[in-house]
């Protein structure tokens, strides 16, 4: 039956983990704004978090049914996250005083879009909050269920 509240909390916990990862990656990107590398070195590229939905949903429809029926008890939250670098080219700038500069005084500077990172942080924080609320609602449901049969209903 649906008394397994432990893994009900696990769904929200998985969601919180995903949002925390997005927040950390956005912070990392911001922290590496203007990171300088020498020519030919591997520059810092902004990272993106790719969230994969629950494995229970990714499975194809059974015997050609239009709408798949999914057992609610099988839901487990997002299954995995990938952190992948975005293929942006660093800008080449003239900075002859930099010890990393090449013979022509050029260095590579990483291209980070601070607006995009701030938007990611904002949405990650809000989504984290939503997961916390879902978890609190699960807690209150579980606690109220314990009151079944108590005199003050």
């Amino acid at each position: 039956m649906s008394s397994a509240y432990g893994d009900l909390l696990a769904i929200s916990a998985a969601g919180m983990r995903v949002e925390r990862t997005r927040l950390e990656v956005a912070s990392d990107n911001l922290a590496n704004t203007n990171a300088v590398t020498g020519r030919g070195g591997e520059p810092f590229r902004p990272l993106r978090v790719i969230v994969h939905a629950d494995a229970a949903e990714a499975s194809p429809p059974a015997d050609g049914a239009m709408a798949r029926s999914i057992d609610p008890m099988a839901l487990q939250g997002p299954s995995a996250v990938d952190v992948v670098p975005v293929a942006t080219e660093p800008s080449v700038q003239y900075d002859p005083g930099n010890p990393l500069a090449d013979g022509h005084g050029m260095v590579q500077v990483s291209q980070i879009n601070p607006v995009e990172e701030m938007m990611t942080m904002m949405s990650a924080v809000r989504a984290y909050e939503a997961n916390v609320r879902a978890m609190n609602a699960a807690k209150s449901i579980a606690l109220r269920a314990l009151e079944i049969g108590s005199t003050s209903a």
Partner: peptide
């Protein structure tokens, strides 16, 4: 509740 939690947890999943 389980279904709604799942929807919220997967809010940033692309294939959801």
């Amino acid at each position: 509740h389980r279904v709604i939690s799942e929807n919220i947890a997967n809010i940033h999943a692309d294939d959801f």
